[in-house]
Amino acid sequence: MQLPTQAQVNTAGRYAGAIAGTAFAIFGLQAKGISLDQVKAMIAALGTVINDIVVFAGLAATAYASIRGVVSSSPTGQAASIGANASTVVQPAPGGAATVTITDPAMASAALAAQNKSA
């Protein structure tokens, strides 16, 4: 099994931060006097079917966003992102390689800095 890349670890960290932020928001609402029981009562008042749809949508959206984030930060996802960027020109080379030309100076500088840092 291949270990995750640094970009994938960073993505997972961002999602962990979002989860922690949600928890702090809930505690903040409680500190303002809005109890979790009041929120649950409001959702329950919508009815069982609507409540189930809300719960399912929340779970599905969280799972989908997490999967998309990790996949997009994979090496293949990052390569596809570079190829789709209007500031890059990708030319095929022999043996399955490619030459990437970056036309945006700021983007080129950032790419060189990242490459030098990883070397």
Rank of each mutant, 00 (worst) to 15 (best):
F24T: 15
P4R: 01
L36P: 01
A57N: 07
I34K: 09
F24H: 14
T76W: 02
A7L: 14
V9F: 06
F27E: 15
I43A: 09
F56H: 09
V71T: 12
A7E: 12
V39W: 00
L112H: 04
G17Q: 10
A7N: 11
I26L: 08
Q2M: 12
A93E: 08
D104N: 14
A63N: 08
G83Q: 03
Q91T: 11
T11P: 02
I82K: 04
T22K: 07
V9H: 05
Y15C: 05
Y15K: 11
P105R: 02
A97D: 09
S72H: 13
V54F: 07
L3T: 13
G69Y: 06
A31I: 08
T48A: 12
T99N: 15
A20Q: 14
A108H: 05
L59S: 03
A12P: 05
A93M: 10
V100H: 04
A106I: 13
N51R: 14
P105V: 01
A113W: 07
K40W: 06
A106R: 15
A12F: 13
A44T: 13
S87D: 10
L46A: 13
I34C: 05
I43T: 08
Q8L: 02
V71N: 07
A108I: 01
D104L: 03
L36E: 06
F56N: 08
A45R: 09
P92N: 01
A97C: 03
I53V: 15
Y64G: 04
A114V: 12
A84Q: 13
V70Q: 03
Q78Y: 04
I26G: 00
G17H: 09
I43M: 05
T48R: 14
T62K: 10
A57F: 04
G58C: 00
V55D: 04
G47S: 04
I102L: 03
I102Y: 02
T76E: 11
A57W: 02
A106H: 06
M1I: 06
I26E: 02
V55H: 07
G77A: 04
A16I: 12
A18T: 08
A41Q: 05
S87M: 01
G58T: 00
I67R: 07
V54I: 12
G83V: 00
G96V: 06
A20E: 07
G28A: 15
Q2H: 10
T5M: 05
D37L: 00
G13W: 06
A20F: 14
I102M: 00
M42T: 11
A84D: 05
Q78E: 11
S109V: 06
A97M: 10
G33Y: 10
A31M: 11
A106S: 11
G69S: 03
